[in-house]
């Protein structure tokens, strides 16, 4: 069977790409679109290194067929920063030393941002359970959890300031 042509919105841009019917969204992002920030740690939905947001839902892109992306919106690690301005989650990961090898980091950042987008004030417990699908073998998670809690606090601050100034 030949390749399929898929149209989707990726990090806000309308894109078209070709894919094998059996190819995963992760394969398409990495191989067809050159977006190698999403990583493959397992290919079976167990490590979260491939985490992206599909129509507002956090998913493991290794478990989604590329063809399923047709007509949908996908947000990847490459779209988290606004231009050269890092997202607070990214900045806090750097400031808190929340990465060692950095291989799990894109998945953690996409997942953490997804958490904070719908829960601006998570407890440590909530952060730990939300991120339980993302494996990190280097850090023992301590600094990651702290970075996410710090980013949440900063984002709440920003929102409050915006409200006050508005």
């Amino acid at each position: 069977m030949g390749k399929m042509m898929i149209s989707a919105t990726i990090n806000g841009d309308a894109q078209q790409f070709l894919c094998d019917p059996a190819a995963t969204l992760l394969d398409a992002l990495r191989d067809e679109l050159g977006l190698t920030g999403s990583k493959e740690g397992c290919g079976s939905g167990d490590c979260g290194a491939c985490t992206v947001v599909l129509d507002g839902q956090m998913v493991c892109s290794c478990l989604v067929l590329a063809a399923e992306a047709e007509g949908r919106k996908i947000a990847t690690i490459e779209g988290v920063a606004e231009g050269s301005e890092l997202h607070p989650v990214q900045r806090k990961f750097l400031e808190k030393g929340a990465l060692q090898c950095g291989f799990c980091t894109p998945g953690f950042i996409v997942a953490s941002k997804a958490l904070l987008d719908h829960n601006p004030d998570p407890s440590e417990h909530e952060v730990r359970y939300w991120l339980a699908g993302n494996l990190c073998r280097c850090t023992g998670y301590d600094k990651i959890v702290r970075a996410v809690l710090d980013a949440a606090a900063e984002l709440r601050q920003e929102t409050t300031t915006q409200r006050v100034s508005a």
Binding site: T36, T76, Q90, E95, P106
Partner: peptide, 21 residues
């Protein structure tokens, strides 16, 4: 001290090139 690592931004933005990249 605890400065930001020089390879940090590449790694939080998905630009860093690993084995399969």
């Amino acid at each position: 001290t605890r400065p930001v690592r020089p390879d940090g931004v590449e790694k939080v933005t998905g630009k860093a090139i690993y084995g399969t990249d």
